[in-house]
């Protein structure tokens, strides 16, 4: 069996006495689309933050392509091919849309801390950023400050920034939160398009999005994964229905 893209073992996190993540073992294969669902407060975002080293775990390990990420900082993890978006839109609001994407390309294109290259002279940066803008349909908004975009456009931009660096593991934290139906459909298609061939891990509340996108689903309840499997199996799992899914599914149909 090939090495999984992401492997969590015995991952735990406590804030003071409160144990938020209570021992998670999870293996996500390459090019898999994995959704993490669960009721509010289950620890989904915390799990994301542990994987990406926004917080250090209390115990347990995260492995990316078999490499232990313990002790690495977010920027080091990003350089190893893991990129994420945030639950609350996290972009550079004062910069133009184009600049946002270009900044996301700099490290990936090997510019590092260069002070001997001019960004505007680099054809690969300009064309690369424009290609991303075209993918996320924001080419017409290119010169606007990112903070002036509509909410859905900002979410699309954040997805663009997240995928721009060419990471092969993409983590999206509630990409459709707070969106209308048409916006949700648009973002779902966008995610489908830009993550083709990549490993996708996402937290999502909208069951339509989850069952539309994911080939594997994990259900997180009170800091533990109570079920992992194909959408149909998870949907049928009585434990899941009892804990969480039933209400949500009824609302859906």
């Amino acid at each position: 069996m090939s090495t999984p893209a992401l492997e969590l073992s015995g991952l735990k996190k406590s804030f003071g006495k409160a144990e938020i993540i209570r021992g998670i073992d999870l293996s996500i294969g390459k090019a898999e689309r994995h959704a993490i669902i669960g009721p509010n407060g289950a620890g989904k975002s915390t799990l994301f933050n542990l994987i990406t080293a926004r917080f250090p775990p209390t115990s347990g390990t995260v492995k990316l392509h078999g490499e232990d990420l313990t002790g690495l900082q977010p920027f080091q993890i990003n350089r190893r091919g893991l990129s994420r978006s945030f639950q609350i839109t996290n972009i550079f609001p004062a910069m133009t849309v184009f600049e946002n994407v270009r900044c996301a390309l700099l490290w990936a294109q090997g510019y590092k801390y260069s002070f001997w290259n001019l960004v505007s002279k680099s054809r690969s940066l300009t064309e690369g950023a424009d290609a991303i803008l075209e993918q996320i349909n924001l080419l017409e908004r290119r010169e606007l400050p990112a903070g002036m975009l509509s909410y859905a456009e900002q979410r699309a931009l954040e997805i663009g920034i997240t995928i721009a660096g060419g990471a092969d593991v993409i983590m999206l934290d509630e990409p459709t939160a707070g969106m209308s139906h048409s916006e949700t459909d648009y973002i779902t298609d966008l995610i489908m398009k830009v993550t083709a061939g990549k490993t996708l891990i996402m937290v999502e509340h909208d069951m339509g999005v989850v069952f539309g996108l994911a080939d594997q689903i994990s259900v997180l309840v009170y800091g533990e994964i109570i079920a992992t499997g194909k959408p149909a199996d998870v949907r049928a799992d009585p434990k899941v229905q009892e804990a969480y899914l039933g209400a949500a599914l009824e609302a859906e149909h």
Partner: peptide
């Protein structure tokens, strides 16, 4: 350019590969 990015949003810059 990244100096501006870090000024505006250090966390996002970190998740783009920059310390």
């Amino acid at each position: 350019r990244m100096a501006n990015a870090v000024r505006d949003n250090p966390e996002r810059a970190e998740f783009l590969g920059y310390s």
